[in-house]
Structure formats: C-alpha cells, structure tokens
Simulated scan of single mutants.
Amino acid sequence: MKFALSILTICGLIALAYTAPLDDSATARLLRYDFDNIGIDGYDFSFETSDGIERKESAELKDIGTDTKALTVDGFSTWVAPDGIKYTLNYVANEKGFQPWGEHLPRFKPQPKK
C-alpha cells in the first residue's frame, strides 16, 4: 500500500512539473535596442526581448530651483509573469525619490513632469 502511494505521489509530482509554465528567459533574444547618450544632460534607451520584456527610460538634468541640478528619470518596464499575466511598472525618479505605479501596485498619484 505504501509503495503504491509513493508511486502515485511521484507520478503526481511529474505531472505537476509538466504543467508548469516554461521559462524561456534563458533563450530570449534581443529584438530591439536603442540608446542615445546625451552626455551629462541625460540619456534615452529602450529595448525589447523575445520573451515579452520591454523597457524604456529617459533622463534629463533639470534645474530644480536651488543651487543644484537634479536628474529626472522616467520610464516603464513590461514583462509577462510565470502565471501568464502581463505587468507594466511605470516610474519617475527625481529629487522627490523613486515613484512607481502600475495596475498591480497600490495606487497613488504620481508627480507630474515639469
């Protein structure tokens, strides 16, 4: 009886492993890559891979009204999770800190660009 139960448990684990989503990130290919280095004033870049990842980011050096300047970065990243759901994370990073938002995150109002 214990032997039959062990065999059933092993078969169940094997079946579960075959139903798990495949992770093709190890074989993902770069489909698109763009980069523009503006120098000390900022940058722009974006890329997309065959496994559904996409990212775009830009930065600009801005005068924030003090004796110093701050780098303002805004962008987004999109990916498909192992459960098949597509997520998008938007963000702004500036003198006020890193401010992310997305449908999967608790909501807050992001700071508008100036």
Rank of each mutant, 00 (worst) to 15 (best):
M1Q: 15
M1A: 14
M1P: 13
S6V: 15
I7T: 10
I10H: 02
I10G: 08
L13N: 10
L16T: 10
T19H: 05
T19L: 08
A20P: 06
D24W: 14
A26H: 09
A26M: 05
T27N: 12
T27D: 12
R29V: 15
L31N: 10
Y33C: 13
I38Q: 12
D41E: 09
D41N: 09
G42P: 01
Y43K: 03
Y43T: 03
F45G: 02
S46C: 07
F47D: 00
E48A: 15
E48I: 10
T49K: 14
D51E: 10
D51K: 04
E54P: 07
E57G: 00
S58F: 01
A59G: 06
E60H: 05
E60K: 06
K62V: 13
D63E: 10
G65M: 05
D67V: 10
T68R: 09
V73Y: 04
D74G: 00
F76M: 10
S77P: 02
T78N: 13
T78F: 07
V80P: 00
A81F: 02
A81D: 01
P82L: 01
D83C: 02
D83W: 01
G84E: 03
G84Q: 04
I85R: 00
I85D: 00
K86I: 01
Y87M: 01
T88K: 05
L89Y: 03
N90K: 08
Y91S: 00
E95D: 06
Q99S: 10
G102Y: 04
F108Q: 15
F108G: 15
F108N: 13
K109F: 04
P110K: 08
P110W: 08
P110R: 10
P110I: 04
Q111H: 11
P112H: 05
K113A: 08
K113C: 05
